[in-house]
Amino acid sequence: MRIAILPLALGTFAIGLTEFAVMGLLPQIAQGLDVSVPAAGMLVTAYAIGVVVGAPLLTAVSLRLPRTRMLMLFMGMFAVGNALAAVAPSFGVLVALRFLTGLPHGAFFGVASLVAASLVAEERRARAIAAVFLGLTVSNVLGVPAATALGSVVGWRIAFAVIVVVALASVAGIAILVPRTGIGTPARLGSELAVFRQPAVLLVLGMIVLGCGGLFAFYSYIAPVMTGLAGFGEGAVPVLLGVFGLGMTLGTVLGGRLADRVDPRRVMAALLAAQAVLLAVAVVALHTRWLAALVVFGVGLLGLALIPAVQSVVLDAARDAPVLASAAIHSAFNIANAIGAALGGVVLAAGFGLGAPSAVGAALAAVGVLLALVSMRVAARRPAAAVA
């Protein structure tokens, strides 16, 4: 069963490369397509919008397909999008392709999480989900720096071509290694949509949108904060991004183990509370280099440790129809990304200083704690109502 999870993790590795490597290649892309670097930032925005739109849309239209076929379809679309991006003739075409490439992102993550969970015993479910997300975190530690370096030397188009190869390897692995049976049956749209009337599901999605916005309020401005506040040189920023990625990787592993042993709702509340405290302390700690490095590691660790717990809660709340709700998690994360980055930019533009995005992040994480606590109360009432 662990072997069957490998091609799923390889798919999330390819997704991580596509989502984050572009950020390091923006200067090369801007120069190659004759646009400014700020304008090239639209490539990041277009992809994020594609994720938000595509996660529920693609999942809804493919619900009648077997889950293995859904995974192959989504990753195949991803490969095609990157292949076309590698030969895009103009910036406008590349922006459109980035939107289209983002469409299968959340749908793949959602279905891959369900398939991984179905391959193992229930007491190991969160760890299986964490294994799928390891591809994303490892891409941040190893893949993104490598793709950025490759693109800088031989051109950004080659970096997209490499992603195509990884995505196609994932498709082949899914076809060969992932079982066709025992991983769920085709779903009905009406049942999947009915799940969104459940308070437990809505609370978790709201908690992601607001609570996880704290992570992105900090991460979006990590470069100017580390150079302008902590006193690091520009050359240290890639190293700090690697530290953040290491924190994400360790957090994914630990979060999976924790959510299998403790009520995942308690895990969500505890992790968001720790994130709120850490980001509040960061307002002061970011003035000291070694403390700033610890903050970077800790924010990455706590942010990704949350994922297996969130996925487990949604699987429990939407047990009979989990496909669309699972995909919606990733739309919620990208909305959190947009909200966190926007609010962080607002306080910076207002002149509150480079520590302000961390303060905003702490406030958002604290709101997430409140929603997680409400989710715990709702879950506690459900068994009592069932007994009555």
Rank of each mutant, 00 (worst) to 15 (best):
P27W: 02
A48P: 08
L33F: 06
L33Q: 14
V22M: 15
V52Y: 02
A48T: 05
A60M: 10
L73C: 04
R69I: 05
A55M: 10
G24E: 14
G54A: 03
E19Y: 11
G32N: 06
A30L: 09
I29T: 01
A48D: 07
A39I: 06
A55R: 09
L58G: 03
M42P: 02
V44T: 14
V22P: 10
L58N: 13
M23H: 05
F20K: 08
P56A: 12
G32V: 00
D34Y: 07
M23I: 04
I15P: 11
T18G: 09
G16N: 12
V61E: 01
G16A: 15
G16M: 14
L26V: 15
T18C: 05
L26Y: 15
P27F: 01
F74P: 00
F74V: 00
P27R: 01
V51N: 10
G32I: 00
G24Y: 09
P66T: 04
E19T: 12
G16H: 14
G76A: 04
Q31G: 14
V53A: 13
P66E: 07
G50Q: 07
T45R: 11
Q31M: 05
V52M: 03
F13S: 10
V35I: 15
A46S: 02
F20D: 11
M72E: 15
M70G: 04
F74Y: 11
M42D: 02
A40E: 13
T45Q: 13
L17W: 05
A48L: 04
M70L: 06
F74G: 00
G41M: 13
D34C: 06
A46P: 02
A14Q: 15
F13C: 14
M77I: 11
V53E: 05
R67K: 07
A60I: 04
P66M: 03
V22S: 14
T59F: 05
V61P: 06
A55F: 10
A46C: 04
P66C: 04
L63T: 00
G41V: 09
A39K: 13
T18H: 13
P27N: 02
A39T: 13
D34A: 12
A60V: 02
A48F: 09
